[in-house]
Structures are given as C-alpha cells and as structure tokens.
Amino acid sequence: MTDLFNELRAIWAFSKREMVIWTSYRVNIWTWIIDVFINTSIFFLISLLVGHHLMGAYGTNYVSFVVIGLSIYYISYTNLGDPFPRVARIYWNGTMDLYMLSPLSYFTPVIGIMFRSVIDDYPRVGLAFLFGWLFFGANFTFRVPIYVILGVVLIGFSTFGIGMISASSFYLLNFKRGSEPISFILQDVVIALVGGYYYPVNVLPKYLQILASFIPHTYALDLFRRALLPGASLIQPVLPLQYVLSFSPIVVDTLILTLQTVVLFPLGFYLYYLGIQKARKEGTLTRWQ
C-alpha cells in the first residue's frame, strides 16, 4: 500500500511538473484550440461536399460520425504515439539514470511523463464534440452508458499497451533517433487506413476489413458510434466478427476490446521491462556512459 502511494506520489510530481512546462508555453493554448476547431471544420466542409449520406448502421450525420473518429484519433495519437518520444526525451535529457535509481517502478516515469500528452490531447476530445455540436450540426445521444465507459477504459489501456510496445523498441531494438517503425506502421499506415476514423470499415475491401479486425480502434469506433449516434443500430452487424459471433455487435466490440487489452497492455509493459534489462546489460541505458 505504501509502495502504491509512493508511486502515485511520483506520478503526481511528474504531472505537476508537466503542467508547469505545458503552461510555460503560453501560445500553446491558442494554437491548440485553433487546431481542434480547424480539424472539426474540415470534416464539416467535407460533409457539405458529400452530403449526409446514409451510413448504414451508423445513422446519417457524417459530422457526428467524424467527431467520434477524431476523438478516438486524439486518444490513440496520445496513448500509442507518445510513449516512444517520451522515453526518448528521458534518455536524451540525461534523466534516465536518475529515474532508474529512484525507488520507483520502471514504468512510473513513463506514465508520469505521459501526463503532458494527456493534458495536451485528451481535452481535444471534448472540444471536438463541443465544436461539432455548436457550429457544425453534430448531435449525439447517450445510449448504453456502461458500454461507453467500458469502451473508453479499454481503448485507453489497449492503445497505451501498443504505445509501450513501441516505447520498448527504444532499448529493445535500439531505435534511438528519428521515427520509430512500430508506431509508424501501426498508427500512420494500418490504423489510419483501416481503423475507420473517417469512413465506416465496411466500405473497405474484404481483406482490409479482416486486417481491421485485429486493431482495437475498429471495435472502439463501432461501439461508440452505435452508442452515441442518433439513429445508429444496436443490432445490425458491420464488422466481420460481428457476423461470426452470435452476440449483439456492441457486446462483440466489448469482448474483443477486452481481449486485446488483456494481451496488449501487459505485453507492452513486459517488453519495456525487457528493454530496460537489455540496456542495463549492454550499457546503453543512459545517454552518458
């Protein structure tokens, strides 16, 4: 219990520090709000161009559909994309040795330092919903709230698990500089193409739909759209596994997300642990030898 308290205290210390750093860049807040506004308006303009077409099980409002896509994109961008650069920052700043010699778990510094990403990116979700609703005609309902809450938790943990797998490559595969191929391939190639941020997955060719079945985003987006979009169906299957499994689509989404979280989250942390151990053996843990 004391250990847990100390880890939480350290995470809180990191969070406070990240908050000070974040607020020290005063222009940040304005560019941040404008960025979300522009992103939402772009998709509104696209929706004007293509019209509010029927989107099958997801109702008819494309702006609402995309606001949910953007929200998951922001969460994923943070949880999946940020652990690697955060570990790199710790390493290149020369603080890895101090953190590793502090009586903390290996993971606390990474979790703590992720707070900057959280304050930078998570509120964008709320802003996307707000701007979509205020200016661009998005509307939402709030059905099956328990599934929505579960979905938020599961997509958070599963994407963070992938993020930690990506971060582990810093030491495990010695990707010390530039972009990191795991998050690039997953986030910028596979998920960007088949995750369904901006279009329903069932418009993709069958083989890409099967590829989409392996990523958490597909199920989270399906779950949130069914639960939050007015007129969306809770029973009409869209994803390949929803045709195979004889549960309601939203239950299938939750089950698969749970399974992916149970695998990805511990795997990410385990690989990161292995990476640190490897670095300690090879003498590459800290920047200065």
Partner: peptide
C-alpha cells in the same frame, strides 16, 4: 550524482521546484 547530471535538470522549474520534484521521486 553524475558528472553530466546538470543536463537532466528541469529547465522550466526553479531550483526549489527541482529539488522538491526529486524529493517526491526519492520518497
């Protein structure tokens, strides 16, 4: 205390905040 330890100081924080931050990490 490492010879290059100053590299890892928290540049946006004050001297006191730096020490308080590490006091939290060091339990």
């Amino acid at each position: 205390v490492s010879t290059s330890g100053w590299m890892g100081l928290e540049w946006q924080l004050t001297v006191y905040e730096n020490l308080l931050f590490y006091a939290d990490l060091l339990r």
